[in-house]
Design a protein around this nucleic acid. Structure first.
Lengths: 238, 238
DNA sequence: ACAAAAGTCTGCAAAAACGCAACTTTCAAA
DNA sequence: TTTGAAAGTTGCGTTTTTGCAGACTTTTGT
């Protein structure tokens, strides 16, 4: 991460994926002046379940998990997000978040209020069109996850979860290690199981040489082999 | 359904939810001239998994299931859709559908090709904005379904599936019967289980007076009671 | 009206997954 | 370096879910 104290201006932001860039140049300036950029440390909440929605968040740089909990406190990670991704959504008056967003690493987040977003969207069709396509793509992704949740065995769900993490946060080129340190509990909350099953399965995948575990790192030794394990689900995300 | 042979013009369409209506009046005419309206009989495919994407489909009137299958032929219904809803998405060159759409009743469907949609979206910010909001809302809905798939027991999943069907297709005012005749197999493909479990559970719910079964109809006798069964998941869809 | 086909229901045994408990490892603060 | 808390691992009994088999019912086509 770049230094915490310097605010990254939209006009100078190196994040090529950010949709704000699709606005007209004077709108980029205008929106930039309205935005609120915050650097969150690892493990902090960006917003909480039940909080009023005032606008949307763009990730300038960082790694974020979006989760939803039930009354027993059991959590489910519904989405992982990184550079250029959008968190939350435009809210109507009085609407509250049904989910919470938590940083998995230090992250720089840009906040834009509902009114600013609405004005920018109405004035910049290219921007709105791409925002629409973003949501549409995320919808298709999660539709595939729905199938996986409904039909996969626990081992398959865990393999899917590993591939999902790898596709979102990436793997190091040389060693194929996941670009994030992720706990057994977090993996369980992605795969929809418990941390014991994660332990058991990672040990088993390690023995099959499909992955390797080195300390807290997970190395995706045999990426193709993992994909083959779940190929019958025809998942086209990875 | 209105007569099969008469094409419903966008300008005269009684469907108040359709986003096309948000375009400028001359765009509505233009888009109407480009559209292709087809009446599908119950059980017909609107599009198939693997087919090239040429545009999007709007449901003028009808009931549709969107499902995704794996190589074993096992299916999963990922979404139910009715009047005013959108099927498919704008595709890039050479992209194919990862899902298929099948009518559950006779349905009148309007098709708009990629280019027409793109032009209309670029010229009508109100239309684009609402399309974006549609996808954003569907994303939130399915994020909640993700949690339910990950954490619920089979009985809870089946109750959720019943409430999902009721909220999408509605229930008759007097008797609270589901406004659709749905097979055990279809319910299984929504809930992510098998038809035997559906049978067992419906019998049990019937005995608990939470629902009643009359022939092919499912009567949601105790709607609130069903909601209470899954209240710990804080699902805000119904 | 009849037969075939499709759909539904129920019991039962096998398989999968869960959750507790005990134990080990890792990490960070004292 | 010690020590305690948190995270991870593993075994095992219990619970849940599955999938097959067979009976029964409804629908469909001839």
């Amino acid at each position: 991460m770049t230094s915490d104290n310097i605010i990254v201006e939209c006009g100078k932001c190196k994040n090529t994926d950010c949709y704000i860039k699709l606005c007209d140049s004077h709108w980029i300036l205008l929106v930039n002046n309205k935005k609120n950029q915050i650097v969150f440390k690892k493990g902090q909440h960006i917003f909480l379940e039940g909080h009023l929605i005032f606008g949307v968040y763009f990730i300038q740089e960082g790694k974020v998990k979006v989760n939803s909990s039930n009354l027993d406190g059991k959590k489910q990670i519904v989405r992982l997000a990184t550079d250029g991704h959008i968190l939350g959504h435009l809210g109507s008056q009085g609407e509250t978040y049904p989910i919470e967003a938590v940083t998995m690493e230090d992250s720089r987040i840009c906040f834009f209020d509902n009114q600013t977003m609405h004005d920018a969207l109405m004035a910049n069709p290219q921007f709105t069109f791409n925002m629409m396509m973003f949501y549409s793509k995320e919808l298709r992704k999660i539709e595939q996850r729905t199938k996986f949740f409904a039909q996969m065995t626990v081992e398959e769900k865990i393999i899917f979860a590993l591939l999902y993490v790898a596709s979102t946060f990436g793997i190091s080129k040389k060693e194929k290690a996941l670009n994030v340190i992720i706990s057994r509990q977090d993996l369980a909350e992605i795969a929809g199981t418990n941390s014991e099953q994660i332990s058991r399965t990672l040990t088993s995948l390690n023995q099959q040489n499909l992955i390797h575990i080195r300390g807290k790192e997970i190395i995706m030794s045999d990426y193709q082999g993992l994909k083959n394990c779940i190929s019958r689900y025809k998942i086209s995300l990875f």
